[in-house]
Structure formats: structure tokens, C-alpha cells
Design a binder for these strands. Sequence first.
RNA 1: GGGCGGCUAGCUCAGCUGGUUAGAGCACUUGCUUGACAUGCAAGAGGUCACUGGUUCGAGUCCAGUGUCGCCCACCA
Length: 761
Amino acid sequence: VDWGRLRFTMDEGSAKAVRVAFERLYRDGLAYRTEALINWCPGCRTSVSDLETIPTPETGTLWTIRYHLIDEATDEPSPTDAIAVATTRPETILGDTAVAVHPDDERYRSVVGRRVRIPFVERDVPIVADEAVDRSFGTGAVKITPAHDQNDYDLAKRHDLPMITVLDDAAAVSAAGNGYAGLDRYVARERIVADLAARGDLLDTRPHEMLIGRCQRSNDVIEPRLKTQWFVKTKPLAEAALAATRSRETRIVPERFEAVWEHWLTNIRDWNVSRQLWWGHRIPAWYCPDGHITVSAAEAGPSACEVCGRPASELVQESDIFDTWFSSGLWPFSTLGWPDQTDDLRTYYPTSVMETGHDILFFWVARMMMLGLHLTDAAPFHTVYLSGLIRDERGVRMSKTRGNSIDPLEVMAESGADAMRFALIHGASPGQDQRFGPQKLETGRNFANKLWNATRYVLGARPQSIPADAPRRAPEVAELGLVERWIRSRTASTVEAVDRAIADYQLAEVTRALYDGIWSEFCDWGLEMAKARLADTSLPDDAREATWWTLVESLDVFVRLLHPVMPHVTEALWTALPHAADDPELVIVARWPSPAGRDGLVESSVGEALELVRGIRNARADAGIAPGDWLPATVLAPEDLAPAVSDLGAIIQRLARVRPVQVVAAADEASGSARSAGLAVVTGRLEAIVEPPTQALAAGDRERLEKELATTEQRLAGARARLANAAFTQRAPAAVVDGARATEAELAAQAATLRDRLGRT
RNA sequence: GGGCGGCUAGCUCAGCUGGUUAGAGCACUUGCUUGACAUGCAAGAGGUCACUGGUUCGAGUCCAGUGUCGCCCACCA
């Protein structure tokens, strides 16, 4: 980590960016100050954004109350004519300025336009018709409190209704609430319900399931209120953000989040950016005694009111601060020195991939996109990679209050930073939550250990003929035997798999490819085969050297590939490995490997030999032959495979615990005599005849062959059925049909051999 | 009320644009002081791919619907 680039959103660099950004938005008409309905948290005594208001299910109460209609003749409430409305917040009666019904509602058609008297405040308000009213809910008539409800506010705007604020900063009833003034909202609620009942105007009381907006920070019940606040006009910004994703200038991974993105940005409301808190960037707006606004990005503030010219000394700065996401939204460029055209900005902006949890797609990513596009004319990144959330072992979302979150520092102390990193990446599918617990750390720890030991072995197996300080060299293909070429080819295949997975942002797949390539292939087979080569004293020095350099070369590749996942072990191993002259001192800056040395023919012929080794091991285990017993064996190979298998003789011996292996062309006369000698192992196109110790034997072995034959014939029947289907041979692609034919031929040959060994025809 | 995701081995999860016998880790069974590693090695057992129907020569994979768990968005007072 380059600690020289440490940044904090409260730095002066960031503070300057915030001021300049705000001034730009203000001059462009995208930042404005107005009185509007905002979410008010009475606990924090500040406004909060829509996103910070968490809808929480609760069982409340739905009260049905009666408002008396005004008798036109007397201008007084009629004792009998009334309209019933349903509400979950009776205390807001005090701020009612209308009752609304649906225009097509027959029940209320006659009363639209008449007035009702609001009790306690004794205010006469009109009955209006509006399509937003749901006829089927409650009584079909709704009381309108524009100053304390978003729906009512919108409706009031359409009907030009007055707005009366009846709750103060502490959510207590304000002076407008007459006799209830000063009471907490919930105390007032109880009183009002009781008083309505006493008047005979409470018609019904029933429990009601509903969603209550609560403050993300304090959990207090959010109260919508009218307040004068700063807003950012989001429509044009959101449109630009949408255009960027639609044109693929910015891509969201996984793609399905683009639908969510579209929906949110299409329906976005203006962003309330002012907060009545102390900790944060103060809004750089100044007010003069005449109410003029001056916005200035200058560190010292404006010198005079930009409208009337009053001197700075008579101006008062806004005491509100910005929503923290405002400064965070500038992060991609504020950290690089913006608004100055710094070298960093030119070099690193726009950046490439933004990685973050899908839970802050709106909070942060959307704001970075909107502000970035407007202020820098460029999307801040070309890709947004959304990770899932980390849950605990039982799948519960981690949180501090629940106490189930884990401290990464503790995990690292116990299992190591690399194990933790491996576990996290191993479980990372784009946008998909993952469970995390101690068990998952073991895999990474063991894997690190495996690579460590493999390297230890290789370093210790250096042929005497190579000086300890010899620079790393990549052996020429011509120097290599089958084993070495196989190792190179499989290593290249791992590079390809990792490259592919990275290009697709399939991080779990990256670790899987590495785990497989390093453990299941290189360690399990490559190293074991190489041991036979290194131990073979009949080989010339340079052949053994080539083997060793091949191993070193693969380790070198693996260390580079694995470095992003397990930086610490790989850095340590890098130090221990021999290096070429142009290798840097640290892997972190080393060149990324490119796949080289892929060889399909080598992979398949060695693969067949390894398959035979597996078959022999399998047969030995079934026959209950002690692992330590070395058995004589003959391998029967088709002509094209015979040279390769001969070449691998010593390896087959060692891995399958047989001795000495003699390879006979399957068509030869000699194969006949070998056949009578013992256990037949048939894998693919190869066969091994192993001579068991006399006591182990026959019945069990026959059973094994019968089983083999049964599965082979079952597969063969399947393959034939497919090929017999004219629709398949005609419609399937030629390559698939050819593959099926080859499979059929191989299975047929294998079945024939097995039948022969069982003495059948 | 809209939208999205999960449902594959006992557990946790991979399976990309449909194509031989559906994989891994952990757990489980059997054996192993195999000259790197018991944090290991070898061999094994374990799956009607939630359900129903459809498209196709062929479906875990595509389409429609159902169930179930979970998430996001939303102005039913």
C-alpha cells in the first residue's frame, strides 16, 4: 500500500473539492435552497435523506374519526352531517388543511367542495377530489396534513392548500397545536384520541400493520416536516448517469443490477444535502440581512454579498453541513487533486473498476456517477463491481449491534491475512452474499501451506550441478521430456483459466483455478512425476537440470498468479525462488505471466498414462494388496501411444508401485503371454497386466472387472443410442457428433478388452 | 404493490454462451511414519440438480408457472 496517498474525506483537499463542487452546482442551477418536506430525525435533530430512512414493519393503530361538515346556512358544524376519515397519526389532525376523496367515488360526490371543521384547532377546511386517494382503503376519505406527510404534501401542492407545521424539532406539538402545544407527539396522540372519544367522534379503533420510517442512525421514528434546506436537483444528473450505463461507458457487474439502477435513477427525488449536525463540511453559503444568498468556494469565503454588495462582515455563513455522501460522491477525483488539473488526475482519472457492496449502490456509486459526470464530464469508472455482503456462518447479516460481526484483525492474527483473503475471494460471486466462518479459513491456510511445502521441496531438490545462486532460466522445449512438457502445458492452462476468470470478474473461479492447478495438478501429479525424473541417475545431468528448471518456472508462474489473492506467502516465496536478471525485487510489481507451452498431444498422452496409474491403484486397493508391495507389470499400448508410455515407464512404476514396467504393443505376440499372467487393468486405450502376490486374488478381481464392464457397457449403450438417433446425427453440430463417434469407438474397444479378460466373447 | 436473488452431495458452495459419466472444500468410510506437506497421501461412499409443464436431437443450464427462503424499491392514510 502506498501510504503516501492516504486520504480522508475531511482533508483540506477534499474540503476544497466540496466547496468548488457545490459552487459549480449552484451556478449551474443544480443546487438550491428552499422550504420543502424533508425527513426529520427528532433524535439526531437533523434532516436525513430518503435512503437513510428505513421502512420498518410495525403494528400500529388505525383510528377512524369523524369530521363534521359545515352547515352552509349557519356556517357552523352540523351535529349530524359528517365525513369519516381513517388515520394512523391522530396528532396530525392539528395540521390538517383538507380532506380528500376520489373524484369518482359515488359516496362522496355530493360533499366535494364543502367544508369540514377540524376539531381542537377549530379550522374549516375544504373537501377536495384527487385521484391519488384509494377508495378501498379505510373510509375512502383521507385527512390531509401537508406539512407532515409526503403524499399529503404532493396533494396539497396540486390543490394549492396551506401547509401548517404542528411539530417542532423535538417532535413535540408546536404553538399551532393550541391546547396540545408542548406535548410530545405520542402524548398528544393519546390525548387527542381520548378527546375525540369524549366528543363522540371516534368511530373505530383497530390494529394496523404498517411501515414506519426510522432513522438509520438513531432508530428514532422519522417525522416528515417542512424545513428550509439545501437540495441538489437530481433529474439532469440522474439522466446523465443513466446515459452512461446505457451506452456502456460504465458497466455494472453483475448486469442484473442495471435494472435496479435504472429504476432508482428514473424515480429519484431531489437530494436533500444539508444536515443540522456539527461534524462535516460546512455548506459554503452566506446570507446577508436582506436574505440574499452568496455561494463561494474561496477558502476565506466571499468578500461581499454578491447581490447587494454588503461587506463580508455583515454576512452569516450557513451553519448546516453536507450529507456525508456529498463529499464521498466526489471521492474518485477529489482524492486526485481535483479541481486542480494535477498529474494524478490526468493519469488516474477516470479510474477503472469501482468495487463495493451492492448495499451502497445508491448511497455512493450513484452519487459518484452523478457528480463525476457533471463536474468532470467523464464517468468516474468503466466498471462497477458489486460484491455481496458477508454474513455469519448461519447466514445472518453481520452487524455490530447483533454482535456477530468479525474483526478482520483478529481473524488475521489467528489464521493469517492470506488465509482470510483467500477465503473471502474464494466465496465471492458477483452480487452474491456469502457466509463466512472459521471453517472457510482452513482451506486457505492449508493451501498456503501446500504451496510453501512444494516450494520447499523444489528448492531442496536442486541438482548438484546447478550452482545455488544460478539465475533462473526457462528451459528450451527441445530439452524437455514428456513430464516437463506436461507440467508446462498444465501450468499454461492454469494461467489461461485465471486470465479468463479475471476478465469475467469471476473471483471465486480465480481461486478455484489456482487451487486446482497448483494442488491437484502440479503437486499431486507434476511434482510426483518430477521426483522420478530427478531421482533417475541414469539420466544425464542436463536432463535433470531441465526438469528442475521446469519446476522452478512453474512455481514462478504460480507465485505471480497467486499474488493478488495471497500477497504475503507469495512475496516470501518469491524471495526464496531463483530469479532471472530482469525480475523485480517484489512480486507485486512483477510482470503478469502469459500462458506459454500449451501442448494438447502431450497432455492427452500423459493423461492416458496417469489414468492407467489411477486404474492400477484402484485395482490394488480393491484386491487388498498392501501399499508397500511392488508388483511386476506389463503395459499393453496401441502403437501410437507405446513410445510415450515407454518414456513414462519409470514414472508409472513409481506412482503405481509396480516394477519394472515393460511396454508391449497391444497388437504384438508378446501381449498374449502377458495376458495370462495376472490382474488386468483397462483404462481408455491402455491396459496393464499386474502380477499379484499369489495369495491375494481372483474372486475379488473378477468382481472388479465385471463392475468395470457393466459401467462401460452401460455408457456404450448410451453412446450408441444417441448415434442411432437420426435426429441427433443430422441436427447436432459435426464436432459434437464426431466426438460421440470417437467416444463410442473407445468404449467399444475397452468393453471388448474387458470381455476378453473375463473369458467371454 | 412492483422488482431481484437463492433452492445442486450431510454442510458451505462452483457449474460461463444447452453437448460425453454434474464438480470442489468440509464432514464421512478404508488404508498409509510413500524422503515437500498428517495443515498430508491414496482409494472410496454420497446427488429424482425444489416442483410442474414446455422448447430442443439433447435441459442443472433456455421459456412459462408453482412452492419456499431472503433481499431491494414503493406516497394505502
